[in-house]
Amino acid sequence: MLQYLSILLDDTSVAYCHADNPLTERYLIPLETLRKAILFGMKENLMIQYVYPDYELQEEYNALIESIDHVKIGRDVVVYNEVPKKITAENAVLRLSIADFIAKQYDIAVLLPQIARLNICLTDIETFKDEQIEEYQKALTTLNTVLLDQYKSGNRPQLSILTDRLQLKEMHNCGAGDTNIIVAPNGKFYLCPAFYYDEQTGINNRLNHHNPTSERSVGDLENGLQIPNPQLLKLDRAPLCRICDAYQCNRCIWLNQKLTWDINTPSHQQCVIAHLERNATRDLQRKLFDAGFAIENEIKEITYLDPFDVRKNIN
């Protein structure tokens, strides 16, 4: 069931997830389109998230934006594309390549005492090689060490890839097209911003094959949402994910269709990274337990990093 509507205020709105925004020319959402998008969100009872560009908007936009409860991505939620010296926002997103994440693990660790919540977003998951497993594990261990100290001293900073799984008892993923939907400045719906970027840059379209252009929208504000095969965005139609307990995984459907060509099937890379994080969370959980913290949600030991390797009798 849809819960969130994200409105891209401009073509150059900040990228806040795996995919970079390749669009460099400003195109501000027309005021009337913004009004219709807000109306849609109100009628569908959706929580609205505005995704901001890096420039200030005119007053008439601000007035409209403030007409409804919302979150401002790129304002309330600050997005960093490199590791900052200091984070002042309560809620931030740090977008990094895997190599940078590994190289800057100590710089990230320094930030942890400053934040309430930091979402880590890796921007090149498709390039991950099994040879990087050890390095990635080590970086997670570094961050765990600081998180443990923080917990011991009474702070509870949230680092998405390590602390979310401590609480989660079921899948809590990106939800593109299922719990979340995007409106772009052109007034069309997209499953997530990455599909809009692909369309705008003419990247080959494997999702909406009937359209020979790179059209990737799933409806528009005039005619409503028209998601083809919406059932494939649900967990129960994802054979690998529904048997998986790396509950913090983004389950990025954009990466799925890009790497496996099927929207409900995760790539080896996404599964391995999610399991390295899950297992690191387990380590953190055990250390917290040893330090006297109560554990309600025990993470079990498993022997695999990719559920594909342990799928059984499903084919």
């Binding site: 494997r206 094959h209 054979p239 690998l240 790497l259 496996t260 060509w261 099927d262 409900n264 099937t265 995760p266 790539s267 080896h268 890379q269 594909f308 799928r311 499903i314 084919n315």
Partner: peptide, 24 residues
């Protein structure tokens, strides 16, 4: 478009086989 999973030079991209091997 054809569902090409690899070729004789570069081998098989196993990600492209995952949907098939998890089908039920």
């Amino acid at each position: 478009e054809a569902w090409i999973i690899g070729n004789i030079r570069d081998g098989i991209d196993k990600n492209k086989l995952r949907p098939f091997l998890t089908l039920d």
